[in-house]
């Protein structure tokens, strides 16, 4: 009797959990569902209903730069905003940044993980403190530095992608910290035999450590890609001309002066930007649990 009651109670608790989680998810995911619906709504003003009466791809045509006929006025409409170009700018900048960051941080991570040198402890402490500073705090200095550099080398001045990428490279300490955490977990014995066979440290690093670390390097690269793609403040300070903007800055300008009239097109643009990033995130999120929380913090 008592046992039966317990089982019944457990069943009720589980059912309550399911109901609770489902209703919570409905609330949480409501904005996302609403945006998908609005992007397909041909009359997608900001006040239009959540469930569209009929479905059209006009908003998508607009943001992809494909001309279409307006259903009410019959005009041919073509976007004057290079939304697709902003997206490609962002992808280009994020990809180059991620690649260069890996190139610049792996050797340092290896040295900090393996070599014993005089300033090692201090270096680790400095690295730990510095990787906490987001570079946006120095935005004013970056602005003047690029302004000055651009007078000498036009390719890395303000309003250039080269300059923006250069500024992002200041984020190497965070990556060094992550990669070093992984290198620490690779047993040293693998290298010792190679060194006995006459390999230099650099050969060991190139031929043994790097191939062993491709998973972590991919993850760190993808994380850098996501973070660069999502940055708003630095491109908004450093870039000016419309064709040069990144997706984040462009889309903010696109929507901020016309919230009510461009809501449907904006919804489509949001999905266009969010879907690839979301996909990348799902491929690396397991690492955020195991790597960032434990390996990342332990030195």
């Amino acid at each position: 009797m008592h046992k039966e009651f317990l089982i019944k109670q457990k069943g009720i608790i589980t059912l309550a959990k399911h109901l609770g989680l489902i209703s919570f998810l409905l609330i949480i995911l409501f904005p996302i569902m609403a945006i998908i619906s609005i992007s397909l709504n041909p009359t997608g003003g900001i006040g239009s209903s959540v469930i569209p009466d009929n479905i059209s791809l006009n908003n998508w045509r607009y943001i992809l730069g494909i001309p279409y006929e307006d259903p009410i006025s019959g005009e041919i409409i073509e976007s004057s905003f290079p939304i697709l170009r902003w997206l490609l700018n962002s992808i280009k900048i994020s990809f180059i940044t991620a690649f260069l960051m890996l190139l610049l941080s792996t050797t340092s991570a290896y040295a900090l993980s393996r070599f014993r040198f005089r300033a090692r402890e201090t270096s680790l402490l400095v690295l730990m403190v510095i990787q906490m500073f987001p570079n946006i705090m120095a935005m004013i200095a970056f602005y003047f530095m690029l302004d000055f550099l651009g007078q000498i080398i036009p390719g890395i001045g303000t309003d250039t992608h080269g300059g923006l990428i250069l500024v992002y490279l200041g984020g190497t300490p965070f990556n060094i910290w992550l990669i070093k955490g992984y290198f620490d977990t690779i047993p040293k014995s693998i290298e010792d035999s190679a060194i006995l066979d006459g390999c230099t440290r650099f050969q060991v690093f190139m031929k043994i450590i790097l191939p062993l670390s491709t998973p972590i390097l991919t993850v760190v690269g993808l994380l850098t890609f996501i973070n660069t793609f999502s940055d708003f403040i630095l491109p908004s300070v450093l870039l000016k001309s419309q064709d040069n903007l990144t997706f984040a800055v462009g889309i903010q300008i696109f929507i901020s002066d016309a919230f009510s009239s461009r809501w449907g097109q904006f919804a489509a643009a949001c999905l266009l930007g969010a879907i690839p990033i979301s996909a990348i995130f799902y491929s690396v999120h397991k690492y955020i649990v195991s790597g960032l929380s434990l390996g990342g913090v332990k030195g």
Partner: peptide, 26 residues
């Protein structure tokens, strides 16, 4: 050893320490 640290160290000095210092100067 410094050869390995060089890429990280230079980006760190020029793109992190120097901007922080400039911010203070401004």
């Amino acid at each position: 050893t410094l050869r390995f640290l060089y890429p990280g160290l230079t980006t760190f000095l020029f793109l992190m320490v120097l901007p922080i210092f400039f911010t203070f100067v401004i």
